[in-house]
Amino acid sequence: MGSSRVRVAVDAMGGDHAPAEIVGGAIKAQQELDVEILLVGDPQQIEACLAQHPTAPKMEIVPAEGVIEMTEDPVPALRKKPKASINVAMKLVKQGKADAVVSAGHSGAAMAAALLRLGRLPGIDRPAIGAVFPTMVQGQPVLVLDVGANVDCRPKYLEQFALMGTVYAQYVLGSEQPRVGLLNIGEEPNKGNELAIQTHELLQANERIPFTGNCEGRDVLSGDFDVVVCDGFAGNILLKFAEAVGGILLQILKEELPRGKRGKLGVTVLKHNLRRIRSRVDHAEHGGALLLGVAGVCIIGHGSSDAETMCSAVRSAQEAVENQVLDRIKESLPALSPS
């Protein structure tokens, strides 16, 4: 690729605050991380944003036309707009001109574009969106997947999620012996619906998956698990609930701090601590969610991503590439149960 640095194609037009915040995050990433950014989108709009940062490093702009709107049905829209920014970004990875894609746009469109342009890894029936959450144990996050790619699942899909999650936890999150849990309504193996019961049997039988048993909702953020697998329906509810709780906690902290001069003094004294609290409770601080199971590294950012969050998303992409997550997942696939 002409460069030893990880090259990340950033969908500059995707997200609630695109392109200004996306470009700002790309600049921050190229300044702070050892990466090379390719900004994909409308050249005029991107150049106007770059002009607001006169000291920004030079970045390549890859022209694209249009964006997939949140109200559009992903697959028809992708076919109707072949030059849309997310399509062009995925094509760069397919052609080997970029190592990863980061987009804060339509998550369904990002997943569909990845499937259409990059394809699935052999042996993977459905890709999964994995989100990293903070836990009660500092420095020990938990990966939850799927958080929205697959509303309806079969047991073998969840087995595949567990295997991919194990690899990601080992090589990116730094868990030497990841503990994999199955989201359920009780600890006992016979608890839950038919999907949970059958999945429990598959995970328990697979020696490659370090399965430790069922994980109840209250245990997800306990630090007792490194990977939690579930279908996309339950996972997305969990994701949105966690986002709300994090926001509420921060709001309560602001409201409950003393008012007046004492309050101002308290905020000044606690500013660093409040920032650290935010980074621990807000899972958006981890950047975005990795789409596992496609033949390329793809990070789906939050629609409301600001520059800071986009920089974190680029970092997640960089870590996945440098730790050879795709190759390691491919090596693990023979351990899956026959379809």
Rank of each mutant, 00 (worst) to 15 (best):
K97L: 14
L115P: 03
T199Q: 01
E216D: 13
V167Y: 06
K97G: 02
S107Y: 04
V132K: 01
R208N: 05
A131F: 13
N184G: 05
P122Q: 12
N190K: 12
N150W: 06
V102Y: 02
P127N: 00
G192D: 13
R179N: 11
P141L: 05
E188H: 00
A104N: 00
G186Y: 06
E176G: 03
S175D: 15
N193V: 08
Q204V: 05
T199C: 07
A114F: 01
L115A: 01
N150S: 10
A169R: 03
L116V: 09
G139C: 05
G108V: 10
A100R: 00
T135D: 12
M111S: 04
V180M: 06
G213T: 06
G192W: 09
G165P: 10
G96H: 09
D152I: 12
V167C: 00
G213M: 15
D125K: 14
F211S: 06
V144E: 14
L143Q: 05
P178S: 06
L195N: 10
H106Q: 11
T135Y: 13
Q177C: 07
T212A: 13
F133L: 12
L203N: 05
A98F: 10
A205W: 09
D146C: 13
N150A: 10
P122E: 14
E188R: 09
L173P: 01
P122V: 11
G181L: 04
P155H: 10
V151I: 15
K156T: 14
M111G: 03
Q177G: 04
K156L: 10
R179A: 11
P127R: 06
Q177A: 15
